[in-house]
Amino acid sequence: MLNPQLTKDGKLAHLLTLEGLPKSILTEILDIAAPFTEVAEREVKKLPLLRGKSVFNVFFENSTRTRTTFEIAAKRLSADVINLNVSTSSTSKGETLLDTVDNLCAMGADMFVMRHASSGAPYLLAQHLRATGRDHISVVNAGDGRHAHPTQGLLDMYTIRHYKKDFTNLTVAVVGDVLHSRVARSEIAALTTLGVPEVRVIGPKTLLPTDVERMGVRVFHDMREGLKGVDVVMMLRLQNERMQGALLPSSQEYFKVWGLTPEKLALAKPDAIVMHPGPMNRGIEIDSAVADGGNAVILPQVTFGIAVRMAVMSMLAGH
């Protein structure tokens, strides 16, 4: 089957997931992002690449950071940005997803940045655009259900490369609520593709997918054991809003066993970096002393996220 993300000549047409994307494209995105980081230091923080293009941020699920960084990225590329908070709009009046999209296409959309609570919604959109002969319009998945959050995965890879230079000698731990995390899936896919020799997943059995080993990771149910000697700690947010039923005793209990404290972090390498996709639950999955400490690179992640999103958008708009 044709990879729906790639054009016939192997270029990026949509960014839907990091699974199945070749290493060469992942590396190309990171390479292109690097010079974009410098734009923030100029008097005029704008490049003309997307001048005259309309980018529609279509968010069927709430988000502040992701939507804002996509908006800044598009604006730094000189695009016109239209933000739609669809959760409070037409769909609540009964319009279908594809009808909403067709209406936005009629308004002259060149690119959709889409977040949706249902896994696969951005695929549906990309297929619909292809089936209706609108291949020039690209789709960026800004998070779909529990499935994928590719730009978060990419900005995490950018951050790791920035601090650690090389992927092929690292031990990386992904910690916490993997079950509900689209971020974790994108991170694991990218880490594996980029050649990280050891990816560990650390969490309670109730918050790990049953077939997690099939993702090519080492599984630890003891956080102290799992953190020993790691170069990178990627924390995940405890997603209370997606939990049905009692997966956890209490958040205090969770912090005691699975929270990243300075004492647990001391088991990792001394120069280990600590990452978190945000928003952080201080005192639940991460101690403030770690979040604000010298190993944390959580705010640089946000800054790099803008450059990475600029890279993705400029690759898509020029395909």
């Binding site: 190309e28 390479d31 292109i32 690449l49 400029s314 690759m315 020029g318 395909h319």
Partner: peptide
């Protein structure tokens, strides 16, 4: 850019 897309391997301007 509109015709050929982004040039590969752009470097940082400094």
């Amino acid at each position: 850019y509109g015709k050929k897309g982004l040039h590969p391997n752009p470097r940082k301007s400094e």
